[in-house]
Write a protein that binds this DNA or RNA. Structure first.
Lengths: 198, 198
DNA sequence: CGGGCACTTGACCGTTCGGTCAAGTGCTGG
DNA sequence: CCAGCACTTGACCGAACGGTCAAGTGCCCG
C-alpha cells in the first residue's frame, strides 16, 4: 500500500500500527481481528483498508518499523568504541536494553519467527545485525584478542543468550536488575573468549 | 477429556495428535482448522471431539507428550556422569540432539512460548529442566570447578544458546554439523566457566 | 467559495471457524 | 447371538472472520 498521505493520514496510520501492535503482542496476531482494531480506535472498518492492504501487511509494517528502530539503536551504541571487544559488549547491551524497553516489538519478533509468513521478512534484518556482530568478533580474532573459531556462530550464540534473557523478563519470570544483565553480558564475553591463553 | 479407550481408541488418539502436531508446526496452530485435521485422517468431525474437548486441549496434550519425552532423554543422558561439569555438558548435548530430532515438538514449544494460553503449561516443565541444570551448576561451584555466581541464570543462558542454535537449524539457516554443536557446547562451558583461576 | 481529493462510514459479502448432536456402525464380553 | 458400549458419521449451528464498496464528509488549495 503506497498512498499519498496527509499529516492527518500519517497520524491515523501510526495509531493503527500502535494499537494493533499492542493487541497482537498481548492477545496474539491471529486471535486479534481487524474489527477489534478499528473498534479500539473508534473508527469504521474502511479506515483500516485505506491504510493497509491486509492484516498481514499491517504486521509486516509493524515488524519493519521495529527492526529499523532496533538497528538505529545498535549503530548508535557502537560508535565511539575503540576495540572490537568493546563494540561487541556495547552491541549486546544495546540489544538487551532496547528489547527490554520495547516489549511489544520484542514479542512480535518472537511470534513472527515462528510463522513462515513473516519469518522470511524478519530474517533479512536479523542477518544484517548478526553479520555486524560477527564482523566485530572476526576483528577481535584478527587482533588476537580471542581465539579463532566461527564468528557467525559466536554471534548467534550471543543473540540466543540475550533473546532468552529478555524473554524471561517479559514473561515476568525474572526481574531486569543490573546483575542479571551483567551475568548475560559476562556469559557472552567469556563464551567468545573461550580457552584463554595466559 | 478422560475417556475409557480401547487399544483402537488409543491408536486413533495418537493419530490425531501426530497429524495435528505436524500441521500445527508447518502451518501454524491458528491457521490449522479442526476440519483440516479430520480430513487429513479421512474421518468425521465427531471423531475429533470424541478424543479431545477442544482444539486447545489437543495442543496442550501434544505439548505435554513432547515435554515428557524430552525430559526422559535428559535424565537418561545424565546418568553415569561422574562430575557436575560432565552432567552439564551431557545435558546440553542431549537437549540439542533431542530438539534436532524432534523438529515438530521443538517448533510447537517455540510457538507455545509466545502464546499466553499455552505458555503457562510449558513453563512448569521448562522450570523443572532449568532447575535441574542449575543444580549441577551449583554443584560445580561447590566443588570449586567454576566461580560462584547465579546458577539459575547460567542455566537459562545455556538454554538460550541451545534453543537459538536448534532454531537456526530447523529454519534451514544452519547445517547441523558436529562442529556447530561443539561450538555451542564450548560457548556454554566457557560461559559458565567465566574468569578462570590459573 | 467551489471543486477535488484525502479520508471515513458501516452495512454487507461469502467463507470458514470451533463445536454439537441425533443417528448410526461394529467390536466384544457374557 | 445379543446387549451394550466404544467409536464414527456428517449435516448443521451461530458466530466471527477478512475484506469490499457505494455513499458520504470535511479539509485544502486555487
Amino acid at each position: 500500500m503506497d498512498r499519498k498521505l496527509t499529516q492527518r493520514g500519517e497520524e491515523r496510520r501510526r495509531q493503527l500500527m500502535d494499537f494493533a501492535a499492542n493487541r497482537f503482542a498481548d492477545n496474539g496476531y491471529h486471535p486479534t481481528s481487524v474489527a477489534e482494531i478499528v473498534e479500539g480506535l473508534g473508527v469504521g472498518k474502511g479506515v483500516f483498508y485505506w491504510y493497509f492492504d491486509s492484516k498481514e501487511e499491517l504486521l509486516r509494517s509493524i515488524l519493519a518499523a521495529g527492526q529499523l528502530d532496533l538497528r538505529r539503536r545498535q549503530r548508535a551504541a557502537i560508535t565511539g568504541a575503540s576495540t572490537p571487544m568493546e563494540r561487541i559488549e556495547r552491541g549486546i547491551r544495546a540489544s538487551i536494553e532496547w528489547s527490554l524497553e520495547h516489549r511489544v516489538f520484542f514479542q512480535l519478533f518472537q511470534f513472527a519467527a515462528t510463522d513462515d509468513r513473516f519469518a522470511d521478512g524478519l530474517r533479512k534484518g536479523e542477518q544484517i545485525a548478526v553479520r555486524d556482530a560477527a564482523r566485530h568478533v572476526s576483528d577481535a580474532m584478527e587482533a588476537g584478542e580471542i581465539p579463532d573459531s566461527n564468528p557467525n556462530l559466536l554471534a548467534h550464540n550471543m543473540l540466543g543468550v540475550t533473546t532468552h534473557l529478555v524473554h524471561l523478563v517479559h514473561r515476568g519470570l525474572l526481574e531486569a536488575t543490573d546483575d542479571v544483565v551483567e551475568n548475560a553480558v559476562g556469559f557472552c564475553l567469556y563464551g567468545v573468549l573461550g580457552p584463554r591463553q595466559t
